[in-house]
Design a binder for these strands. Structure first.
Lengths: 161, 161
DNA sequence: GGATAGTCGTTCAGTTTTGAACAACTATAG
DNA sequence: CTATAGTTGTTCAAAACTGAACGACTATCC
């Protein structure tokens, strides 16, 4: 690799070994973890991880409902991806679309009773996967350090904190 | 039925607040980060993050080449996803397919000179994104703790790694 | 009041991923 | 050698995602 010629204005700051290791490990773990989760959810309930996250978000809300845009921001999906997934979940009877009273344009997604039961049924198995492959491998101190560190990264990425 | 994920014996162990916070933060950051990276690479070179990762892996190999299956494992992609992406990269002239001398079934993907130049051109900008949104937000200690912790998780997920 | 800009959710075409099926080849065991 | 089992990479249809464009509505300003 030739570091001699770099951009004239902003100097290139490469990642040193430790930084590179951190980034690579983070990337690898997030990919592997997602694969295991996806596999489990598909087998357990025929759900996507994206769909599962939608159900979780809704279940935590008073009224088990959320505006489309806010929900999309919550699960970090594009608006069109959410439209697609809500349609799928509606087809499965886990979610319903409702008109928004305060905004004529708005759509409110609501978790149905069946959706809530589905979530309660599969959550334990899902969390077991998260435990086995991530959480249970970390000491309490590592856990807290990681949370604190990643929260700083999150703040750097969210549209103004 | 899938025996792998159904366990009637062990009691459900929910995640406590700290564990849940860790998991949520990890998930959020990996989604946000991927979005920023994807956006940058698309703008800078019309590449996907998946495609970029393929180029990086190949560039680090003696001969800048790798068997398809090994490459798929390296970037954590399915075999069919890799087939598709290598075809795209071949179309762009960044990668070539070669016959494997030792295995008649095998295909070896090779990074072309143009592919290497492309990578060298866009790597600084990419790493700058990784820095700004992840690495530079962490202290050296946090960085090392996170790497160590996530490596344990990786070991738990790799097919007996 | 009316013009203008902004937001909301959907649609659409094009891209990427998925998992099962498959032909071709290799490895193992008798 | 000859089954038999396993691996390799591709293909295919279906699922999922992307980003731009859009009509519909709201907010803001003068």
């Amino acid at each position: 690799m030739n570091k001699k010629y770099t951009c004239r204005v902003t100097q290139t700051r490469w990642l040193d070994d430790d930084e590179m290791a951190a980034w690579r490990t983070f990337l690898t773990v997030s990919h592997l973890l997602d694969r295991h989760i996806e596999e489990h959810l598909k087998a357990a309930a025929g759900l996507t991880h994206a769909q599962y996250e939608i159900l979780v978000r809704l279940s935590e809300t008073p009224g088990r409902s959320m505006r489309m845009t806010e929900l999309a921001r919550g699960v970090i999906a594009s608006k069109s991806a959410l439209t697609y997934q809500i349609t799928q979940l509606e087809r499965s009877g886990l979610v319903e679309r409702t008109a928004c009273p305060s905004d004529e344009r708005g759509v409110v997604a609501v978790l149905t009773d069946e959706g809530m039961r589905c979530l309660e049924r599969i959550a334990p198995g899902h969390l077991e996967v998260v435990r086995r492959f991530l959480i249970d491998n970390l000491t309490r101190e590592e856990l807290e350090t990681m949370t604190h560190a990643l929260r700083k990264a999150e703040r750097a990425m969210r549209p103004h904190g």
